[in-house]
Amino acid sequence: MIRLLTRLAGIVIAAALLFAMQRTTPGYSEITGPIPVSGAMGQSIAARGFSFRADKLILADRIRWRAYGRDIERDSSGLWAVVVAEMEGRPASVTANGALWRSASGRRYTPSQRLATAPRQLGANRLEPGLPQRGLLIFEIPREEADDATLLVSLIRWPRLDSEIRMPLARDRTESTDVLDLDGLFDG
């Protein structure tokens, strides 16, 4: 009788263990997903293949710049979020165009496509080792998605088994303005 009970207990424990393992097994996309690298604004963060530093975030209603001899201005029904940052390929030349704005509600925004001629956009040019590039990541976001957002930066938009920098955008490094002159950010 005791032996029968012991066996029964063994079977129940094994079943419980298997059930627990089945429920906690991470999915394939989770196992092979991005490798997070956390960091704060103002710090230089080394990821696999590149380094990144975000100095400030500027929220603006309108942005303007000069291209082909004329002034161009873009407004938005939401906000323009302009991240001033520096990036460098390390240890080899890379192209990094995987920046995303992740809002507090979990929505993700890619950099705006409405700014083809805007100056100094990071992600457009190749990053060379030893030649850090100072430039901009510009997102167009709804007003309510501006607070407590996180900046995600990686070499490609959906990295697999590769670094993804996750940087909370700090309020003390955020400025707001009505009109932002992009060219003026780099003068002097």
């Binding site: 390390r90 240890p91 080899a92 030349s93 190749r126 060379e128 080792p129 030893g130």
Partner: peptide, 14 residues
Amino acid sequence: IAATDAQGRRWLPS
């Protein structure tokens, strides 16, 4: 084809 330096940095053709 790439260019490398003593510090192990590697540049691809531009």
